[in-house]
Computed example of a mutant assay.
Amino acid sequence: MNTCQVRLQAREEVAGGTMAFHFQRPTDFAFKAGQAIDLILPAAVAADGANQRHAFSLVNAPFENELVIATRMRDSVFKRALKMFPIGGQVEIEGPFGSLTLHNERARPAIFIAGGIGITPFMSVLRQATHDRLPQEMVLLYSNRRPEDAAFLLELQNLARQNANFQLLPTMTEMDKSDRPWQGETSHISKELLRKTMNGLQKPVFYAAGPPGLVAAMREVLNRVGVNDDDIRSEEFYGY
């Protein structure tokens, strides 16, 4: 893996308590949609070496000319340092790494299951697939508590309109705590919802990303509806 210096170019809030950070992209930095990097803050900023490094999936697609990560802004040493890091300041990145990339057998659909900030690797994949006009069926089950918590929801809705091969199925599980209207799904991702999603799709490959509890639960539910472990790819997001 390569290590290089990059500058922070911008930051923005993309959902309640979730921020995206935009970094300069080195001209020779190549990666596959769905991969990740380690972000390494200067030791003087991170307070101690143990809180200096964190892995993040890249939100941006390979065709885009920047590097973008997104994260829940938890009250940790690393997150506090990242939030206060000056625009124009330099950090190190190491990577890319990770295998949560789209399979090459285009005749087989992809079903993505994202919980909360687990959406980040799938944003990269979906942006690239839409840009390339990829002839592959893709479905995203995206679970959040409320619309306020759903990072990139508006962009995903736009991608679904642009890409006839992409179907977005978001669900909000705590609408009693929301101030926004919602006409969509409100259940947790269950066997019934998965069966309905799979209906009519031939030999799909499943991808799950999010908190460890969600990923473990999704693998178990997928097994219950007859999906073989060989057709499930997953990534657990710790400390997001």
Rank of each mutant, 00 (worst) to 15 (best):
L41V: 11
L102M: 04
F63A: 05
F122W: 09
G118Q: 05
E66N: 13
I69Y: 10
M123T: 10
R146N: 00
E66F: 03
R127I: 02
A46H: 04
A70N: 15
F23Y: 07
G34A: 05
F29A: 02
F21P: 14
L39V: 03
P135C: 00
P109M: 07
P109F: 04
R133P: 05
Q90M: 09
T101H: 05
E94C: 12
T101M: 06
N65Q: 14
K79G: 10
I87C: 02
R53H: 08
A110D: 02
A114S: 09
H54D: 15
I87V: 09
F122N: 12
P96Q: 13
I111N: 13
A81N: 10
A81T: 03
T130K: 02
F23M: 07
A36Q: 02
V68C: 14
M19D: 13
R146D: 00
I40G: 06
G34F: 07
N144F: 02
F122K: 11
E105H: 14
A47R: 12
M84R: 15
M73Y: 09
F78D: 01
A70V: 06
E137V: 08
M138W: 01
P135E: 00
E105T: 12
N51H: 06
I87S: 05
A36L: 05
H131I: 07
Q90F: 02
E92S: 06
R74P: 05
L100E: 10
P109N: 09
M19L: 12
M84F: 12
E94R: 13
V45K: 09
G116L: 01
H103F: 09
F31S: 04
R106N: 06
F78N: 02
M73V: 08
F85L: 01
V68E: 15
S99Y: 04
A61Y: 12
E137K: 08
N60P: 05
Y142N: 12
L100C: 05
S143V: 04
R106L: 03
G95D: 08
N104A: 14
D48T: 11
I93F: 04
F63I: 08
P86S: 00
M19C: 14
H22A: 05
I113W: 09
F112D: 03
V125W: 04
D38Q: 14
D132C: 08
F21A: 10
N51D: 04
Y142C: 05
R146I: 00
M84S: 15
I113A: 02
A20R: 06
R146G: 00
R80S: 08
H131E: 09
M19Y: 13
D28T: 13
V59R: 11
I37V: 14
M73C: 13
S99F: 07
I113H: 10
G34L: 05
P96H: 14
Q90N: 11
L100P: 11
P86M: 00
T71D: 10
V91F: 00
Q128C: 12
S99L: 06
A55V: 11
E66M: 11
D38S: 15
K79A: 06
G116H: 04
F122I: 03
I37L: 15
I40V: 07
T130S: 03
F97I: 10
L67R: 03
R25C: 10
I87F: 02
L41Q: 13
